[in-house]
Amino acid sequence: MLNSDIFLIIESSKLKFTEVDQQIADYFLNGNPPLKQSELAKKINVSTASITRFCKKTGFGNYKEFIYCYRKTLQEHSNDKNNITSNLLIRYNELITEIDKTIDIEEIKSVCRLIQLHKIIHIYGLGLSAIAGEDFKFRFTRIGKYVEVVQDYDSIEMISSLLDQDNLVIYLSLRGENQYVIRSLKRLKQKGATIIVITSNRSSVMDELADVTLLTSQIKNTNEVGQVSGQLPLLIIIDMIYSQYISMYRENVSKWIGTEYAYLHGHKSSEHK
């Protein structure tokens, strides 16, 4: 039999099934343990003859051939699951190890100090980088910062024309090669804006543009994109920044959270009066 995946074989044979056949099929399609023919008949309350007819409808000579193929398919699916898990764990470990080797904690602290100095923060990010930017926004908005994620060319160009030396811009991009964004960052640099770049691109252009550059890991094999989330290397750096920021400014953060809680609690109380 050319197709050895028993689940596909059963699915492709469904048009020939009676209600009893479907009952037998459901047992196997749910991935239940393989049983002897007599045990299976007793368990699902059908005759052994019905099971034999079912096997023949799916292209097997008898139950022995069918159950052999079923066991093999279960093993293959189990191996696939284990391989996927193992490969992902390896990829995650590689990402974290590489970041740990390249990241400078003093640069993380410098980023935190710049964030502390600015009430308003603009995040530039396209595609998956914008999703990472939303994570940054969610975290820092909760502790008193106004964060705006700018995620398309026109908006980046327009916002850049309005910002000046009093503003902080964080550019998120693994490749760091988009010429439209780089052009806007160059204009911001000329106007004296503070720029932080989080990227895996170790080019001199990024170093020239940024007040601080945080290097993250690369997804080296493009075939892995989709298996390992493309924004994960950026999210790890954001986790590090947020954790360090909380550590450095714990008192300020606690005051903000306390003030916010008091305001919300008082606002809700007044609504019930």
Results as ranks from 00 to 15, higher is better:
Arg175Leu: 14
Ser110Glu: 09
Arg175Met: 14
Lys191Gly: 01
Lys137Gln: 13
Asn167Leu: 04
Glu107Ser: 13
Gln218Ala: 13
Lys189Ile: 07
Val150Met: 05
Phe136Ser: 10
Gly192Ala: 01
Tyr180Pro: 02
Gln151Gly: 05
Ile108Arg: 12
Val225Leu: 12
Arg91Glu: 14
Ser204Trp: 01
Asp100Trp: 03
Tyr124Thr: 01
Leu117Ile: 07
Asp135Gln: 15
Asn87Ile: 12
Ser203Gln: 06
Lys186Ile: 06
Ile123Gln: 07
Asp104Lys: 15
Glu208Pro: 04
Ala130Asn: 10
Leu215Lys: 11
Ser184Cys: 08
Asn223Gly: 07
Ile121Cys: 12
Lys145Asp: 11
Glu157Gln: 15
Asn167Gly: 06
Asn167Arg: 06
Ser155Ile: 12
Thr216Phe: 12
Val197Lys: 00
Tyr171Pro: 01
Met158Pro: 02
Asn223Ser: 08
Val150Thr: 15
Gly127Gln: 05
Leu172Gly: 00
Lys101Pro: 13
Ile195Phe: 04
Val197Leu: 02
Ser129Cys: 04
Ile195Thr: 05
Leu168Thr: 10
Ser203His: 04
Leu95Arg: 00
Lys109Leu: 04
Leu174Val: 04
Lys189Arg: 14
Leu214Gly: 08
Tyr180Glu: 09
Met158Ile: 07
Ser160Phe: 07
Glu106Arg: 06
Ser160Val: 08
Glu208Val: 11
Ser110Trp: 00
Leu174Thr: 01
Asp211Val: 08
Met206Ile: 14
Val147Asp: 15
Asp104Val: 14
Asn223Pro: 00
Asn167Ala: 07
Ser110Cys: 07
Asp104Glu: 12
Ser200Met: 09
Ile123Glu: 13
Glu148Val: 02
Ser204His: 06
Leu188Ile: 01
Asp104Trp: 04
Tyr92Met: 11
Ile219Asn: 03
Ser110Met: 09
Leu114Gln: 05
Thr194Asp: 13
Phe140Pro: 15
Val169Met: 08
